[in-house]
């Protein structure tokens, strides 16, 4: 109990505990002036910093596919991917840059793009997509501001490695274009 090499009261190294906390909390956000725990990855937008897991040698969970190993299941994963794609179509306005931090887009535009990607009842599609936007925001793939009705790429997007982006850029180019807004480039 009298200190030792940075040991916490329970004997757990505080650096280890800080990294464990990041996993439990998903993608926790801290003030840009706070220190990023050692051994954690981070994505910042100037004001805030989101803490992300740090993986060895640039690996991502996509590696599981090579080993034909099922990842943690995601409900309605196809729909979640399509809604994320529709959001990126609107928020990733300069495809030559990285998708993070991207730009805010109107939720209405994302729903419009999503509507153009799906067949069937348009109203129903919008309702599903609205729920999906919330779920993607809960898990750090998007940042959703329901008050202003805008959405931005989420900090997890910053974990995508540059070589993996080419196919995503191709895919997004094939999606319907977002509606043109009169007032361009508003933040």
């Amino acid at each position: 109990m009298t200190g030792g090499d940075g040991a916490a009261s329970g004997g757990v190294d505080p650096r280890v505990l800080a990294r464990a906390r990041v996993r439990v909390l998903g993608v926790p956000v801290i003030d840009a002036s706070e220190p990023v725990p050692e051994g954690t990855a981070a994505a910042g937008d100037g004001e805030r910093v989101w803490l992300l897991p740090s993986w060895p040698d640039g690996a991502t969970p996509a590696l599981l596919e090579e080993y034909e190993t099922a990842p943690m299941p995601l409900d309605r994963s196809g729909q979640a991917r399509r809604v994320l794609a529709a959001a990126l179509r609107c928020c990733w306005t300069r495809p030559d840059d990285a998708p993070w931090p991207g730009a805010p887009a109107a939720v209405a535009d994302v729903l419009e793009v999503y509507g153009g990607m799906s067949r069937g009842d348009a109203d129903l599609a919008r309702r599903w997509a609205t729920g999906e936007l919330r779920r993607l925001a809960d898990t750090g793939w998007l940042l959703l501001d329901e008050e202003s009705g805008t959405v931005r790429p989420g900090p997890r997007v910053a974990l995508w490695a540059e070589p993996s982006l080419a196919s995503l850029r191709d895919l997004l180019r094939r999606l319907p274009e977002p509606p043109q807004r009169a007032e361009g480039g508003d933040e």
Binding site: G39, W55, P56, D57, P61, E66, Y67, A70, M72
Partner: peptide, 29 residues
Amino acid sequence: SELFEPLLRPYDERRRAELVAAYMAVEHA
């Protein structure tokens, strides 16, 4: 990240890839 480097440094490329694959698999499967 340098977090894993001290543990992975002693291994050749093949072993290292095997370690990373096992780590990612048990963490995300």
